[in-house]
């Protein structure tokens, strides 16, 4: 997470400098109508700042114990175990997409398209979230607790490496 967070925070710092420079130059050379650029640059560095510092917090949460994918010397055996669960084929994304397309048509031809789009969208959301149950559909022989272990290890029990 170190490289990831540094990359995004680097972009954040660059955009802060860019926004400040742009603001100063616009103020100096007097294009008073140009406020949109400053607003958009502020939006940009805020978005990157949010993500970058979130990733930095994730990095500190691990108390210096890097993930296997962040270690240069990690072997495939060390990463053994369940990675995550991946849903099988599903009809609901297509239904939700169709609902959103109908929602788009409502913006063109009239709001009655929203009835079709809304029904498709809400129906698909319900279908999507009830489709697979994380705890019930786990394969035989896998302890659900193993999935929890895959998450970030809790802090105090681990040795600190600075």
């Amino acid at each position: 997470m170190k490289v990831e967070s540094r990359t995004i925070i680097g972009a954040f710092v660059f955009l802060v400098i860019l926004a400040a420079a742009y603001w100063a130059m616009v103020a100096t050379y007097g294009h008073t109508a140009e406020r949109s650029g400053i607003a958009m640059l502020i939006f940009s560095f805020s978005a990157y700042g949010l993500l970058g510092f979130y990733l930095l917090a994730q990095y500190f949460r691990r108390h210096g114990t890097p993930r296997v994918e962040d270690r240069f010397d990690a072997t495939q055996e060390e990463g053994a175990g369940v990675i995550d669960y991946f849903p099988a084929a599903s009809i609901w994304p297509a239904g939700m997409g169709l609902g959103m397309i109908f929602g788009g048509c409502a913006l063109v031809w009239g709001l009655w398209y929203l009835y079709i789009g809304g029904i498709l969208f809400i129906g698909s959301v319900i279908g999507w979230v009830t489709e697979s149950d994380y705890t019930e559909d786990v394969l035989p022989g896998i302890d659900p607790a193993e999935l929890a272990d895959h998450e970030v290890p809790s802090g105090p029990s681990l040795p600190h490496h600075g």
Binding site: Q76, A80, G81, F86, P87, S132, D133, D137, L139
Partner: peptide
Amino acid sequence: MTLLEDRPQPPSEEHNPLLMDI
């Protein structure tokens, strides 16, 4: 249906890398 995905491993005797084939 939900598929759990194991880390792929170098082939070895005790390890079954193809969990999803079950």
